[in-house]
Computed example of a mutant assay.
Amino acid sequence: MKANITILYNGQTEEAFNFYRSIFGGDFGRLSRMSEIPDAPPMPEDQANKILFMDLPIGDNLLMGMDCPASMPPVNVGNNFMVTIDTASEEENTRLYNKLGEGGEIKIQLGHQFWGAFFGMVTDKFGITWMLSYVNQEQS
């Protein structure tokens, strides 16, 4: 199991990550834009170019970021992060998702996602948002 941090921005993800890369070095692992969402409804160009997901390896960890979609209220600096847990199996992912969701709020239902992960997102009863992800490395 591995824990990483995901930071949510109000449209500054790419700028922030270029800044972090200038400090920590390295290359971006993945970079996806909102326009790459399968079957997404038409969206203005400024929204289509927003970051859906990007990551920057820092040592053995990942700093991950994304822009807040226009359909959601803007994020507030200070509570604009999520803890991401990469699990070793779908079973472990399901167990953690269910336990963390007890008394909390489901944000994204646990299931197989278009990017290849078995993924779900919950906010626990203490207000911390968790993204739980399993990717079968043998199939990816």
Rank of each mutant, 00 (worst) to 15 (best):
residue 80 N to W: 06
residue 17 F to W: 09
residue 17 F to L: 09
residue 88 A to V: 12
residue 69 P to C: 05
residue 123 T to L: 04
residue 132 L to A: 08
residue 21 R to L: 08
residue 92 E to V: 03
residue 110 L to T: 04
residue 82 M to G: 02
residue 83 V to L: 15
residue 58 I to E: 05
residue 135 V to C: 11
residue 129 T to H: 04
residue 108 I to Q: 13
residue 134 Y to N: 02
residue 32 S to T: 08
residue 123 T to F: 04
residue 36 E to T: 12
residue 77 V to L: 15
residue 19 F to Q: 10
residue 30 R to S: 12
residue 41 P to N: 08
residue 74 P to C: 10
residue 29 G to T: 06
residue 64 M to H: 09
residue 102 E to W: 00
residue 89 S to A: 07
residue 120 G to L: 09
residue 93 N to Q: 11
residue 137 Q to D: 11
residue 96 L to A: 07
residue 129 T to S: 15
residue 126 F to C: 12
residue 76 N to Q: 15
residue 90 E to W: 00
residue 65 G to R: 03
residue 21 R to D: 05
residue 31 L to M: 13
residue 35 S to V: 04
residue 69 P to H: 03
residue 40 A to E: 01
residue 122 V to Q: 05
residue 133 S to L: 10
residue 98 N to E: 15
residue 28 F to I: 05
residue 67 D to Q: 05
residue 41 P to M: 02
residue 58 I to K: 05
residue 52 L to F: 11
residue 83 V to I: 15
residue 110 L to Q: 02
residue 44 P to E: 11
residue 71 S to A: 13
residue 54 M to R: 02
residue 82 M to E: 15
residue 63 L to K: 04
residue 137 Q to S: 14
residue 41 P to T: 00
residue 59 G to H: 02
residue 55 D to R: 07
residue 47 Q to N: 10
residue 72 M to T: 03
residue 25 G to T: 02
residue 129 T to Y: 08
residue 27 D to S: 14
residue 78 G to W: 00
residue 51 I to H: 02
residue 36 E to M: 10
residue 87 T to S: 11
residue 55 D to Y: 10
residue 97 Y to W: 03
residue 129 T to C: 11
residue 98 N to P: 01
residue 127 G to D: 08
residue 108 I to F: 13
residue 76 N to W: 00
residue 90 E to C: 13
residue 107 K to E: 13
residue 26 G to N: 07
residue 109 Q to I: 11
residue 111 G to L: 05
residue 73 P to V: 07
residue 117 A to W: 01
residue 64 M to Q: 14
residue 53 F to K: 03
residue 21 R to V: 07
residue 92 E to Y: 06
residue 103 G to F: 02
residue 127 G to R: 07
residue 109 Q to P: 06
residue 100 L to S: 03
residue 106 I to E: 15
residue 84 T to C: 14
residue 55 D to A: 10
residue 96 L to G: 04
residue 39 D to G: 08
residue 19 F to R: 10
residue 99 K to Q: 13
residue 33 R to I: 00
residue 30 R to G: 06
residue 52 L to E: 01
residue 65 G to E: 01
residue 38 P to E: 03
residue 56 L to G: 04
residue 132 L to C: 10
residue 106 I to S: 12
residue 102 E to C: 05
residue 43 M to Q: 13
residue 78 G to Q: 00
residue 17 F to E: 07
residue 26 G to W: 05
residue 89 S to R: 06
residue 62 L to M: 15
residue 81 F to T: 09
residue 65 G to L: 06
residue 121 M to W: 02
residue 82 M to S: 15
residue 117 A to K: 07
residue 32 S to H: 12
residue 75 V to T: 12
residue 106 I to Y: 05
residue 61 N to H: 14
residue 67 D to R: 04
residue 121 M to C: 14
residue 81 F to M: 12
residue 85 I to E: 02
residue 100 L to F: 15
residue 112 H to V: 08
residue 41 P to K: 11
residue 34 M to L: 03
residue 96 L to Q: 04
residue 129 T to E: 12
residue 125 K to E: 03
residue 39 D to W: 00
residue 55 D to N: 15
residue 53 F to N: 14
residue 85 I to T: 06
residue 131 M to F: 08
residue 101 G to R: 01
residue 99 K to E: 15
residue 66 M to G: 07
residue 30 R to D: 12
